[in-house]
Amino acid sequence: MSEIRIYRRPMAARWWARNPTYRRYMAREASSFLLFAYALTLIYGLWRLGQGQAAYDGWLTWLASTPALLLHLLMLIAMVVHAVTWFEVAPKTMPKTGLPERAITLGGIAAAALGSLFVVALAIWWGAWR
């Protein structure tokens, strides 16, 4: 009796580009690189802050430059992608609540919008009244 030869297909190198669900997953996961970049940006800015006014003013000048603004725009998009996809999957990480999953997602996104609005409002107050 001849030996049965099973055939193992290799996994496609770019499997994550093959359907909308995989692409959405990879976009969600890849947003983390820009979130990491933002954390490093803040750490660097704090370091300049610790070095005194002249160093920090130089940092502020760079922040207003076109490359810096473009980078932050990308990081903003990454934060939004992160927030939306975070609450899309959040219902799957919780036991059943009786609420429809869509309600949890939309509630989370609303909380995120309010949270970010609050941060901006806080900054306006900090700059205007303090």
Binding site: Y38, A83, S116, V119, A123
Partner: peptide, 18 residues
């Protein structure tokens, strides 16, 4: 990051500097 990240990027990197 989900709750305040966008706001932080706006303040520190887009709105504040300009």
């Amino acid at each position: 990051a989900a709750l305040i990240g966008a706001g932080l990027v706006l303040v520190t990197g887009l709105l504040g500097p300009v």
